[in-house]
Computed example of a mutant assay.
Amino acid sequence: MATDLIDLAGHEQVVFCSDPDTGLRAIIALHSTSLGPGLGGTRFHPYESTDAALADVLRLSRAMSSKNALAGLDHGGGKAVVIGDPHRDKTPELLRAYGRFVESLGGRYVTACDVGTYVADMDVVAEETRWATGRSPERGGAGDSSVLTALGVFQGMRAVAQHVWGEATLAGRRVGIAGVGKVGARLTEHLLEDGAEVVVTDVDDAAVARLLGRHPQVRAVDDATALARLELDVFSPNALGGALDDDTVDALRARVVCGGANNQLASAETPDRLAARGVVYAPDFLVNAGGVIQVSDELHGFDMERAAGRTRAIFESTLEVLRTADAEGLTPAVAADRLAERRIASGGSTPWLPGQAGAVPEGGTPAPEVR
């Protein structure tokens, strides 16, 4: 089965990592390096099986190729998963062993934080490899990449609001956020500042409690299904992938779906199902690119103002995708895929959009050669 998954995904390289001394079991997947080194985070998750972990890392790394291309970055798609419970199995020794595997790829893969990994973890990984980003500022890094991931999702949401309702604001709109971890909590703050009403849910009761403690005006519901059934303007998945399965799509009462979770679509047919119900979907790999913009900027000598400026350009990028989809009779997911494929096929020689999120501004510092 594992070989079949690799063949179907069309990846350049898949590396299985094992270190018995520390208990490390990990998989690094490089989907494409045609635009540059594969860039993508490391997910630490208690997968039910190796095949489940492999299927996830293949999906995630493939999506990173599109995300990095749409963001205008000179990076291909890569991703890694560590199999285990991060609360129980994560140790400094295991992270250092993982860092040695990343280093062994010689710069073909650049890692960062993802679900289950944090800035402090990347600091440890970086003790063994030059190719760990998302490190703490004290270690020369950009810090928590959820800062710009949330900003990018908010800009994408503003763009969809402009496209659907004629105003680039969520003021007076009801937004349902499924998942209030690192990204979802920061997105909540952007939305409240913009004047939106926010309803949340999370499988982690403590995460909900922390958010409500800071923002008592936010309402919480039991689960994502209950959230989807509410009268919402925007449904925003911000946890693990596969949030938009058939049951959720059928239950949705929102006009817009826009969130930070990776791989939200449960199947290839989901975009058509959403379109048939009149739901406008902002492709996840387009709007959640702020995090990779942030960590990739570490390779330039990190500048938050520069990275945030590139992230705000997700607003125009999202508008362009939605307009292209309407003009060509496509779903936004297909329109975004085609634009990403066009840039990948060009080898990055031409930008894909005016005002692309990853363009180096005048006076900016180009990325170093890391091939």
Rank of each mutant, 00 (worst) to 15 (best):
C258K: 04
V360W: 14
G141C: 03
T350E: 14
T42I: 07
R229I: 00
P92E: 05
Q162P: 00
E305P: 00
F16Q: 06
F16A: 13
T91R: 15
D297K: 09
D247F: 13
L170F: 12
Q294F: 07
V81L: 12
A120H: 15
V199A: 12
D250S: 14
T225W: 07
E193I: 11
P20K: 03
P368M: 14
R174A: 06
V221N: 08
S32G: 03
A171N: 03
V292A: 07
R174G: 06
Q217M: 11
N238Q: 04
D51H: 13
P46N: 11
V292E: 02
R214N: 12
R173S: 11
A224L: 09
E138H: 11
Y281L: 10
D223W: 06
L105V: 02
R310N: 09
P354I: 03
E48N: 04
L227P: 11
L230K: 04
G40Q: 02
V370Q: 15
A367V: 09
Q356I: 10
P216V: 01
T22A: 10
V234L: 03
E12K: 11
V164Y: 05
V370R: 15
Y47A: 00
Q217P: 00
E167T: 04
V119H: 09
A357Y: 05
L212V: 08
A239P: 11
D284A: 14
L35Q: 04
Y109R: 01
G181R: 06
T248G: 07
T225M: 14
A327K: 02
D204V: 12
R277M: 15
G76E: 00
R229N: 07
L70N: 14
